[in-house]
Design a protein around this nucleic acid. Structure first.
Length: 120
RNA sequence: UUUCGGAGCCAGAUCUUCGCUCCGCGUUCUUUGAACCAGGAGAGGAAAGUCCGGACACCACAGGGCAGGAUUCCCACCGAAAGAGGGGGCGCGGCGCUUCAAGGCGCCGUGACGGACAGUGUCACAGAGAAUAGACCGCCCGGUUCGACUCGCCGCAAGGCGGCUCGCUCAGGGUAAGGGUGAAAAGGUGGGGUAAGAGCCCACCGCGCCGAAGGCAACGACGGCGGCACGAAAAACCCAAUCCGGUGCAAGACUAAAUAGGGGACUCGGCGGCCCGUCGGACAGUCCCGGGUUAGUCGCAUUCCGCGGCGCUGGCGCAAGCCGGCAGCCCGGAAAGGUGCGCCUUCGGGCGCGCCUAGAGAAAUGAAGAUCCGCCGUCGCUCAAUACGGCGGCUGACAGAAUCCGGCUUACCGGCUUCGGAACUAG
RNA sequence: GCGAGCGUAGCACAAUGGAUAGUGUUGUGGCCUCCGAAGCCAUCGAUCCGGGUUCGACUCCCGGCGCUCGCA
């Protein structure tokens, strides 16, 4: 299962839109934010790891790689036309990889386009 | 063998599966291009801090002065350059030898190491006195008064007068040896000398000045002169000498797209501090408000060669095989740049050998599993264990390229090589 | 990535290189009050870290650490 460049969020405006209009779920190790995109297409994702929450460059990189790998494996659980932002939290690197993976699978149950806000 | 220190090197290994960024043979689709995909490459010694220097880019071809900043013993060394490296000099500290001592010599360590008669300012508290030194105690001289002792004279006596010596008090003066204060008290030690003392005089040492063998130089063996004049601090301002134009890849160039040649204030503008000077010019420019675009490419990631090997692949052939292709890796070679070591040099550099050349853009180098290695914990064996074996655990040090290179600084579990010191054991 | 600036009690700020680093507020204890507030008195509490210069450093110099800001 591949993760292509077109499925990445790259613009600052995209991140801002998700952060302002999306819904949030705290999963302990990470914060999941998502919104329904007006234009149709495959789901897109962005990863955030701040210096304050995670630490130095080594840990920021490792946190984003973990989140990217988990999303890549289980991206079939995410409906299309969604924009996601996964924000790493301090506990992410303290937990085992399999534990974080299980939390992601669990939270994907909530992701349905019909339950998303329709006023976007 | 253990331990300490210096220098250099390494920074877990192998395999399988699934992925990421870049380069991409080939295939397919509609040429541009897109999709799939064989194969290949893919973090560091510090990639970090951004403390110095350079390359490169733009501002005018980088001009003059002022301001500002940087540097500061010397160098025939090294380097593109630097505040880097190397060597030397001098000072300071430690150890050893020597000396009565001061001192001298050797080894090791260490030093932001120009200038304090160019100038301005500072040295709190304590202390008598702190930079034109200073007399509190003490020591010495000492007039007067007083007292003691004694001598002489006068007097019958009480006593008076005068003198020597000593003491006390107080004027006055000498003295920087000693006490005490302080971070620092204006050369030290010894002797002479003196009323007491003092470089007042002498010897040695220190210091200053002059000369000087030697050395490129800093410096200086040695000699002479000077009785001492010269406190600290320039990481206070400052002075001298030397150097520096500014900004930094978010530099900057191009393409595409978009917009209202809009409103207000000020003014010739550029050469990002100021003046000169110069260039451009009568266009416009600067600041504020409002609005639009806030996308892509380049900068920017060594180049090339081989009837070589590996690998992949096209065509032909039943097949062996034959004829081709070559992006990548390996090997060999060449060139460019960089770097380390060594050698040569006419000081400009040159030669030889070894090594290196990854490149994103919300930003690649990851995940899982297995084995080995390492570390930690625990149990067993054992007299006891750091040795051996079993089990469990592990972000397996510090840490992630962002234009590139050199130096510095800081972080760091360990391992290997080598050199030096110390201790122990054996020969 | 490149470039500027800052760091003093819990908080907001002072302090020519020189008594025991000061002021307000907060905290603690006491007085006052029937109780509390206010007020009064007392008290605890700090120079980001490590070196250096100096007789002496919050101050001057160097190196770290942390924080803030600017740059298409």
């Amino acid at each position: 299962m591949r993760l292509r460049p077109g499925q990445h969020l790259r613009r600052n405006a995209d991140f801002g839109a998700v952060r302002e209009q999306g819904r949030r779920t705290d999963c302990g190790a990470f914060l999941l934010t998502w919104r329904v995109r007006p234009a149709a297409g495959p789901a897109r994702v962005g990863f955030v790891a701040s210096r304050a929450a995670v630490g130095d460059a080594v840990h920021r990189n490792r946190a984003k790689r973990r989140l990217r790998e988990i999303y890549r494996k289980h991206q079939n659980l995410v409906p299309p036309s969604l924009d996601l932002v996964l924000t790493a939290r301090a506990a992410l690197l303290r937990l085992a990889y399999a534990d974080v993976e299980a939390r992601f699978i669990q939270v994907c149950q909530k992701l349905t386009p019909t339950k998303a806000p329709s006023d976007v």
